[in-house]
Lab assay of single mutants.
Amino acid sequence: TEYKLVVVGAGGVGKSALTIQLIQNHFVDEYDPTIEDSYRKQVVIDGETCLLDILDTAGQEEYSAMRDQYMRTGEGFLCVFAINNTKSFEDIHQYREQIKRVKDSDDVPMVLVGNKCDLAARTVESRQAQDLARSYGIPYIETSAKTRQGVEDAFYTLVREIRQH
C-alpha cells in the first residue's frame, strides 16, 4: 500500500529536517529553504509493509500558489509548527483551512506536530497545542528532528489516521 503524505507549515519550522531524519536517519543542521522535494521510503507499520511517498513543501509565502496542487494529491498532512515560534503555531489554522477548502472536506487525515521540542526556549505550551488538536479532532505529537524523538511516531500516526479514514 502506498501513502501520499504531505508536510506543511511555516518556513523554518523543520519540515525538511523531520523528513530527512525519518528517511535518512540524520539531522540536517543548516537551513536551506525548500521549494519542493519528495522522498520515498518502505516501512512496516503495524505489520503492514507500506511505501511512504512524502512531499516536503515550501513554507515560504512566495510558493503558496503551489499549495493547491499538492493538497489535492496528498492523502494525509503533517501540519508542523516549531514550539519556539508562536507565529508558526498561529499559521497552522490557515494551512488547515486551505487543506479543507482544496479537499472540499472537513475530515482530512492530519496530525499536528510541534517540532524542536529539544529546545528550552518554548513559547507554545503543550497544552495550547493539545487544545488546538482536540478542537480539530486530530492527534498532537511533539518531535525533535535533532534527537529523533517522536519522528517515526508522527509519520506513522498519520498513516494510521489515513487507514482509519
Rank of each mutant, 00 (worst) to 15 (best):
G59E: 03
T1Q: 07
G76Q: 01
T86D: 12
G76F: 15
K15I: 02
L51Y: 09
R148V: 13
R148H: 15
R163W: 09
V6S: 03
Y39N: 00
E2P: 05
I162A: 05
R40Y: 04
L5A: 04
R122E: 13
K100V: 09
G47C: 05
N115R: 01
G12L: 12
A121C: 10
T123M: 07
I99F: 07
V80Q: 04
C50L: 09
Q94P: 05
K146M: 13
L18Y: 02
C79L: 14
H93C: 14
E75R: 06
E61Y: 15
Q130I: 08
L22I: 07
I92F: 14
H26A: 15
S16G: 01
K15C: 03
T157P: 03
P109K: 10
T34P: 00
G76N: 03
E48R: 08
I92C: 08
G150A: 10
V113L: 12
A154S: 05
Q164Y: 03
I83N: 09
E2H: 04
R148K: 08
T143N: 06
I23V: 05
D68A: 05
R96Q: 09
H165A: 11
S126R: 10
K103V: 09
V113H: 00
T86H: 13
Y95F: 11
S105I: 13
S64D: 13
I35T: 02
L51D: 14
D53C: 02
T147A: 10
A129V: 09
E142W: 02
L55Q: 04
S64W: 09
Y136R: 05
R148E: 13
F81C: 08
I83R: 08
K41F: 09
G76T: 03
I45H: 05
Q60R: 15
N25E: 11
G76C: 10
I141K: 04
C50K: 05
L22D: 00
Q164R: 11
V8K: 02
Y70T: 13
F81Q: 03
V113S: 02
Y3L: 10
D32R: 01
Y156Q: 15
D37I: 00
R101G: 06
L22S: 13
F77I: 06
Q69R: 10
S64P: 13
G14K: 01
Q98E: 14
L55K: 02
I92H: 02
Y39T: 00
S105N: 04
V43F: 13
K103G: 05
G59L: 02
N85Q: 09
L5T: 03
G114V: 06
M66W: 14
V159F: 07
F27M: 04
Q149P: 08
D91L: 15
E36N: 02
Q21R: 07
S16A: 00
Q128T: 10
V159N: 02
L55C: 08
N25Q: 12
T34D: 00
S126F: 09
Q94L: 13
E152S: 10
R67L: 15
R96M: 15
G9P: 00
M71I: 09
Q130T: 08
V7Q: 02
K4L: 04
Q60G: 15
L18E: 00
